[in-house]
Design a protein around this nucleic acid. Structure first.
Lengths: 206, 206
DNA sequence: TCATTACTGGACATACTGTCCAGCATCGGG
DNA sequence: CCCGATGCTGGACAGTATGTCCAGTAATGA
C-alpha cells in the first residue's frame, strides 16, 4: 500500500518534516516551496512531482495524522459505547505527544484553519457517534442537542490540547490532563469550581 | 479618537468589508491585495497608505471586534463575579450575530489562525479573571487547574459559536444556545446526556 | 478660501509559482 | 547482477503578486 519506491518515501518524509519545522519557525504562509525543498535538500522540481501545492502537502499531513489516530482508536471505541471512559481522549493526548510538531502546526490553524477544521470535524463525528451509541445502549434521552453536545466536548478537548502542546515544559502528564478534562466535562464547571451541591436557579442564564 | 478625515473612514470601511467578503468567498490566502482594492473600488496604492499588509488589515478587524465586544461586556462582567450567569456568553453570541461575516472570517481561522488565536486568548483571559474573582468571593477552591478550566470553557463556547455561525439557517436563538452551553458546562455531560445521578466510579478515566 | 491631506494610476524591481525538459542516478524484479 | 522503469535534478520559462515610489488631482475641514 504505502509507496513502493524507497526514494519516494524518503523524499516525502523529508518534505513533510521540512514543512512542519519551517511552519513552526516562521508561520505557514511565510514559508515558500523553495524554502521547503531547500531544507529538505531536494530539488524544487521534485516537490511538484509529489504535490501540486504547499496546501496539498499540509493536507496530507493532517490526513495521515487522522488516519494514524483512527487506527489507534479503533479498539477503544467499542468500549466507550457504554460508560464514560476517557480512553479515546487519553489516546489522542498520547498521540499528540508523540507527533508533537505536526500537531502543533495543525492545531495552530496554519493553512487558514483548513487542516484544523478537518481534524476537529473528524473528532466531532466520532464523538457524536459514541454519544448516540451510548444513549441508545443505556436507554436515556439527551437533555441537550446532540450537535451542541459533541461540538462542545470536542471544543473543550482541542482547546486544552492546544494549550498543552504549546506549554513548555509540558505542565501535566497525558493521564493528568485527560482526567481533569473528563471530570470537568462529566460533573460540570460548578463542581470543578469547588462548590458542593448543584447550581442554584438564580445562577442560571438570563 | 477615531480617524478624523471622512475619506479615511470611508476607505478603511470599504477595505474591511471587501476583505471580509472575499475571504468568505475564496478563502483568505486566495485573496490578493488587488482583489481587495478592486472590490472596494479604491486604488491599489491607497491600500498601502493605510496598511502594510493583508495581514495587518485582518489584524485590525479582530482588534476592532475585540474592542467592541469588550465594550459591551464591561457592564456585565462585575455581575458575573458572584454567580454563574451566562450574560457575557449571551452577549458574545449577540455580537457575533450582528457582525456575522467578520466573526466567520476570524473563527474559521483565516490568516493561519492568528486572528482566532488572538480572539480566543482575549476570551480566555477574561474567563480566568472571572473565575478567580468568583472563587475568591465565594471562598471556594477550584478542584481543577484554573488554566485547564478557562481553556476548556472558552473552547466549548468557541466551538459551538463556530458551528452556530456556519449553520444556515441559524438553528437556535442566541438565548437558546447560551442556555444549553451554560447548563452543559455547569452540570456536566453526564447530566446533559440524560442520566440522573452522578457518574459512577467505574466510568472514570483510566 | 486655502493649506493640508488623501486618493490616484502607472511604473518599478523583486520574488514566488507552476510547468517543462533533457540528462543522470537509483531502484527493484527477473 | 543486469537493465528497463522510475525518480531526481538544475535550469529556464511565463505569469502573477508584492511593496514602493512618484507627480498630479480631488476632497476635506478649519
Amino acid at each position: 500500500m504505502a509507496t513502493e519506491d524507497r526514494r519516494v518515501r524518503r523524499t516525502k518524509r523529508l518534505l513533510r518534516d521540512a514543512l512542519v519545522s519551517l511552519a513552526l519557525e516562521r508561520g505557514y504562509s511565510a514559508v515558500t516551496v523553495e524554502d521547503v525543498t531547500e531544507r529538505a535538500d531536494v530539488g524544487r522540481a521534485t516537490f511538484y512531482t509529489h504535490y501540486t501545492d504547499k496546501d496539498e502537502l499540509l493536507g496530507q499531513i493532517v490526513a495521515d495524522l487522522g488516519e494514524d489516530l483512527k487506527e489507534r482508536l479503533r479498539p477503544l471505541v467499542s468500549d466507550s459505547s457504554v460508560g464514560f471512559t476517557g480512553k479515546p481522549v487519553l489516546e489522542m493526548f498520547r498521540h499528540a505527544a508523540e507527533e508533537r510538531d505536526a500537531y502543533r502546526v495543525v492545531l495552530r490553524g496554519e493553512g487558514d484553519g483548513r487542516a484544523l477544521r478537518r481534524f476537529v470535524d473528524e473528532r466531532t463525528a466520532l464523538a457524536a457517534q459514541i454519544f448516540s451509541a451510548r444513549s441508545a445502549a443505556n436507554g436515556v434521552t439527551p437533555r441537550i442537542d446532540m450537535e451542541v453536545l459533541s461540538r462542545a466536548w470536542v471544543g473543550e478537548q482541542v482547546a486544552v490540547l492546544q494549550w498543552w502542546l504549546e506549554s513548555d515544559p509540558p505542565p501535566l502528564t497525558p493521564e493528568a490532563v485527560t482526567e481533569m478534562l473528563l471530570e470537568l466535562s462529566l460533573r460540570g464547571r460548578y463542581w470543578a469550581s469547588g462548590f458542593d451541591g448543584s447550581p442554584s436557579s438564580d445562577d442560571d442564564t438570563t
